[in-house]
Write a protein that binds this DNA or RNA. Structure first.
Lengths: 153, 153
DNA sequence: CCCATAAGGTTGCGAGCGCAACCAATTGTG
DNA sequence: CACAATTGGTTGCGCTCGCAACCTTATGGG
């Protein structure tokens, strides 16, 4: 009896999950882009910095980098740009004079206040395409995958 | 009676699904990178071209671009590089002398034959972190989202 | 039959990114 | 107390990418 024929699922890229995840992430980003990009003139790193600083005042660039998983240079440049636009400000820390606390300015808080509801609504409208029990399953699987790939924190 | 207080879920980036999808996609890519990158010296565009041409001989750059959703310049450069490494070859089409059919060379087919089983195994080991019914639900949700965002084909 | 338009593909160019190197301040160790 | 090692953060550099412009060949309309 011959060995059973190799499964030979000849890798259709369109069915390959890692590829599909990349495609989905890109699609979801574009689905959001109109908000922060066209409407507020922010790119993705800037949007992430605003979102982070908005919910966690007085954090360092280091904290932003680790919680968004962006490279510290990317964070540094986003911060510089936002500071130039007076959306955030930095104050030197007294204890450790290397680091500088980042916080939203008044204009930054106003922008944040406008942006957040729109972003949340957009997220909701994306997830709304999933029937309720599929949505719960999806989010659970998402968490499992994140843990497996150690993406949290 | 005052209006009920705003939901005010103050957008934690770590809980924001579009961000999580991007992070997951990046993580999954890195989980695979060791295969095509370190082991075969391919970057992502090159790997996608190889995968596409491997399962669909004699296709055009146009076809590769649309099925992988990569910009045509990215495809063009990946093809040029792979042709230089003699992993693929191009033959001018007789009917339409603008386009050129892309196919794997012998060396390209050998690489493809080595690469595919490893990639599939890696995909399987990623999905294996999900319990069976969560996995089915996840894939179903993935398809729904793809349809919603019109990412297919 | 000619010219405008389009389609396949390549290239010049500017923008964004990560790496490595660096500066400045802090911490640990003998 | 001095000096090595570390940490927060910025900058120079090279690479990749997407856009727009372009070349070439094909197609459609008067």
């Amino acid at each position: 009896m011959p060995a059973r024929p190799m499964p030979e699922r000849s890798l259709e890229l369109a069915a390959f999950v890692p590829f599909r995840l990349n495609r989905l992430a890109t699609g979801a980003s574009q689905y959001l882009a109109s908000i922060y990009q066209r409407r507020f003139g922010l790119d993705i790193p800037q949007w992430r910095v605003i979102a982070t600083v908005g919910s966690r005042q007085d954090c360092t660039a280091q904290y932003i980098a680790s919680s968004t998983r962006m490279h510290k240079t990317r964070v540094s440049r986003a911060i510089a740009e936002l500071e130039g636009r007076q959306l955030i400000e930095r104050v030197s820390s007294a204890q450790d004079r290397r680091e500088r606390q980042v916080r939203l300015t008044k204009a930054g808080r106003r922008l944040y206040g406008e942006l957040v509801p729109i972003a949340l609504e957009r997220e909701a409208s994306l997830l709304a395409c999933l029937p309720a029990e599929q949505q719960a399953g999806f989010l659970a699987a998402l968490e499992t995958l994140e843990r497996f790939l150690q993406l949290e924190e």
